[in-house]
């Protein structure tokens, strides 16, 4: 997991990433890959980003966009790779309260629910 200081990132540049994220998603899908689209759907307490923040994970664990950096992102990535393998969506609760791997004062302290959805070209939608 990333170290301290990753909780607060520049939101403007993040939104820029989202702006082009679907172009990148299309490229991956066109190559026949399955992706996991992880979206924060609800939060409680202090979290780095709000509901609606998005991150796309590839089968190799490559990440596009961010749902807040070190705080829980690695957990989501691990789950996302499972979602890609099984092609079944899941709802993951990320608890930033007892983030033992990051024993720095920069830990955010909240809880976020992240929906991880598999996307592939032939899937309806």
């Amino acid at each position: 997991m990333a170290g301290p200081g990753t909780c607060h990132e520049d939101t403007a540049s993040e939104r820029k990433q989202t702006e082009s994220i679907y172009h990148q998603v299309k490229e991956f899908l066109d190559k026949g890959e399955t992706l996991a689209v992880a979206t924060i759907v609800s939060t409680r307490g202090s979290t780095p980003r709000e509901a609606g923040a998005k991150m796309v994970v590839t089968a190799w664990g490559e990440m596009l966009g961010t749902i807040g950096g070190g705080c829980g992102e690695a957990d989501v990535k691990r789950e996302a790779i499972e979602v890609i393998r099984t092609r079944k969506p899941r709802l993951v609760r990320v608890d930033l309260l007892d983030d033992i791997s990051s024993d720095s004062p920069a830990v955010c302290g909240g809880i976020m629910n992240v929906f991880i959805d598999p996307w592939w070209k032939e899937k309806e939608g």
């Binding site: 702006e19 998603v25 299309k26 759907v41 929906f115 996307w119 309806e124």
Partner: peptide, 26 residues
Amino acid sequence: MDSLVDELIKIREQGSAAVMATVIEA
């Protein structure tokens, strides 16, 4: 996902407002 992704790209490019609704639990 083809048509969905194409629509999302179009929405971004044209700068129009939209809402994507996803079933999380059922």
